[in-house]
Structure formats: structure tokens, C-alpha cells
Design a protein around this nucleic acid. Sequence first.
DNA 1: ATAAATCAAAGTGTCGACAATTTGGCTTTC
DNA 2: GAAAGCCAAATTGTCGACACTTTGATTTAT
Lengths: 228, 228
Amino acid sequence: MVFQSPILKAPVTSSDRLLLEIQRAIVEGEIAAGSKISEPELARRFNVSRAPLREALARLERCHLIERLPNVGARVVKLSVEGLISLYQLREELEGLACRLAAEHMPEQEIQELQALLEKHLQTQRVRDGESYYQEAGDLDFHYRIILGSKNDYLINILCDELYFLVRMYRVQLGMNGPRVSRAFDEHKAILNAIANRDGELADLLMRRHIGASRHNIELQLQLRETG
Amino acid sequence: MVFQSPILKAPVTSSDRLLLEIQRAIVEGEIAAGSKISEPELARRFNVSRAPLREALARLERCHLIERLPNVGARVVKLSVEGLISLYQLREELEGLACRLAAEHMPEQEIQELQALLEKHLQTQRVRDGESYYQEAGDLDFHYRIILGSKNDYLINILCDELYFLVRMYRVQLGMNGPRVSRAFDEHKAILNAIANRDGELADLLMRRHIGASRHNIELQLQLRETG
DNA sequence: ATAAATCAAAGTGTCGACAATTTGGCTTTC
DNA sequence: GAAAGCCAAATTGTCGACACTTTGATTTAT
């Protein structure tokens, strides 16, 4: 099962399709982190001219998957401990805010749907066994819904459209697995409970801890990889 | 004096120049809020082809100054109370975080330079008299430096490159003036003092209050305009 | 042998033209 | 008279070609 963003609009134009394909390729490491991007080469690979490709590159830059220099070109970003810390600092803050706002604005129905979703996940064999990929999708889905529940368009845009692809890249390429998978599940439930009780402050606090723990987990793996 | 972003890179390419000019035109209302943008017309106006113009439009979308629909085109954003609230909710959170990080990471020298800048502003006649435009630039300059002091690249990018043009648009088009101008000055000093004392929590709190007060001020003017 | 200068190959930025889609007014129909 | 269908004008999306810049390998000079 390939994870599909819940806020995904159907790709109508050619550069929309390009964006999705290249995003996936970068996130999954098919286009290596740190590698240079050649516009002519990519254009040939996807059978398009450079015009829609450059449009897609502009959007890739927006979600921090590539970096561009004028007259020089684009590079896929590198993953680093500092980058991860900066990214998760922001996530803690923004998703904490999202929780507070969701506790205020999320309609009862959306809360109930999300509760049902968690129950469904819990009954999935793969989650109980700690299989990582499914959990990956389930976890992102959970966070997405909370963010959407905040009803703050700028916040939604920044988190879902600009930051989350990079988050996924860190998690996919560093293999988010191990004992945290099942513990994350309980944390999700606690957060959602707080929101259901309209306790924004508690939801905020729990979400910050949840993301902090997640950061710590990936951080360890990154340091292992760098020293090993 | 025209305010110049401290993080501004020299425009090297044609679309860089376009971006700056159109940004200014939109922020100052020369291109009206809510109006449709015609690519052929703008291209003629600036004597360029549509290629660099579209590149610039992509970046304008990134900083929330225009909204685009596939196969339909671009529109300048409208200013609204809800939009302002959403925007300032984010600012409170993000600039609060910036203060905490700045208290931790900002070098002594940068702090001293910023203190000197505040003193210089205080001695400027126009600020004492509450003249708005100079204060406008000075205020933004202050906020920029705190944000840069956070040393978190994602945070810097989101605030300075993506959100601040919209903030300026609200302030320019609604005329940020009145008694808040001089009071803002004292608040700046208090925030900087907290950072100099490496008291991140206090700086965070003061910054949130500062931005909240600023939001309240503009909000009043927006409601007056809408009901009047 | 090292460093500066040179030059061709490759890549990026921009242009004008064409294809595909939307828009708004007109006709037709109920 | 209102709604649906239709057509032409305008606008957006895409293409291939050209100009300018960077790159890095080779040559030249110290």
C-alpha cells in the first residue's frame, strides 16, 4: 500500500503529475539524497519538455526536497542530524499549535471518525506486530487529520504541503521501525482523547512529547549511521 | 526609505527581479487585492516573456500573495479578518519559538548590534513622533534579526520568505499607525533584554504578547473598514 | 610542479509559437 | 423567461530553439 496524502488534489496538469512522481522518487531515495539534478536528463526520463519540469522543480524547492542556485541548478537535499533537529523543533511547535486549535475547532464527527480509524489500525495484524510501513502510513494519516482539524489554512499548508515530504523522507530513508511503533499508537490515543475532551493544552503537551520522542528515535539511528 | 529585507539575496536572474517588483506592487496595493492576474498583460508591462513571469508567479504563490488554479490562473489574495487571525496565530507561535532559540543561539555580538539598532531608532525623530512608515521598517528589521538569531533554517525560511510579505501587506494596506507604534518600541526592548539574559521562556512570552497586541490593533482597523 | 588563463561542452534562463482549456456571450430549447 | 448547449475569443500549459552562464579539462606561463 502506497501512502496517499489525504489532502491530495487530483493532478490535472502535466507538472502536477511530475511533482508527485519526483517527490516519490526523492522521498524513497530512488533519486539519491545530495545528488545533482539534471533538467535535460529528468525531462527525457519523464517524456516532457523542460517547462513543466521546471515548474515541478520550483514546487520541490518549496517543500525543501531540493535546493536551487541561480545559473547552477538543483540538488536533492542531504539528510543530517542538524536538519532533523531543526525540522522536528518546528514540528513540535506547529503540531502542538494544531492540537490546541483542533481541540477548539474540530467537529465532533471528525473526532469520531479519527477514533474509529485508530481502532481499525489497532485491529490490523501488521500494526500489532510492529510492521513499519503500514504504521508509517497510519501515523502520517493521524497527524494529517489533526492538522486539518486545526482549520488554520496557513498552518495546514506549511505542515502538509511544505514540511511533511521531508519528514517522510527522513523516516523512509532511515527506516522508522523498532519498539517505538507500538508505543506511538498509545500516544496517538492519548492525544486524541485530550482533543475529544476539548483540552487543548494537554493535547499540545502530549503532541510535543510524541514528536520529541520520535525525533529522538530517528536521531539515534542517524548518529549510528554516521559513526558506523 | 524603502524597506529592504536583510536576508535579501541580490537578484541575479530576470525572474528574481520580477519577483521583487511584483511583490512590492502587490504589498503596496498597486495591484489590487483580489484582482485577477493576466500573464500576457504582466509580461508586456515588465517587458519579459511569460517564462520568467510564471517562475515569479510560482514564488508569489509560495509567499501567499497570490492563489493559482490549474488552467484558470492567478488571483491576488484578499485580506480578511479570518486570514489575519490565522496568520498571526502562526506568527505568535513561530516567533515565540524564534525567541527561545535566539536566547540559546544568538551570539553576543548580534545581540549588541541589535541593542545599538534599537537605540538608534529611539533617537530618530520620526519614531518619537509616531510616524508609521519608518517604524514599519524598523519593526520588521527587529523581528527579522530575532528570527535570524534562531539559527533554524526552516524557521527562518518560513517566516522571512513565506509569511512576512503577507504580514507587510496587511500592515501597509491597513496603515499600521496610531498609539501602538511607540508602545511597540518598549516591547522590543523588553524582548531583547530577555534574550540578552538568555531567558528564552520570558522572551517567548513577551513576543507572543507583542504580536497578539499587534494583531488586535490591525483587527480593529479591519473590522472598522468592513463595517464602514 | 603549481597556478593562472583558455576554451569547448554541458546546463540553465529566456523567448516565441502552438496546443489545450476555460470563459462569456449567443443561440437554441423547454 | 430561464436553463442548457454551443461557439469564438482569450488565457493557460507545453514545446523546441536559442542565448548566456557555469564547469572542468587542457593549455600556458611563472
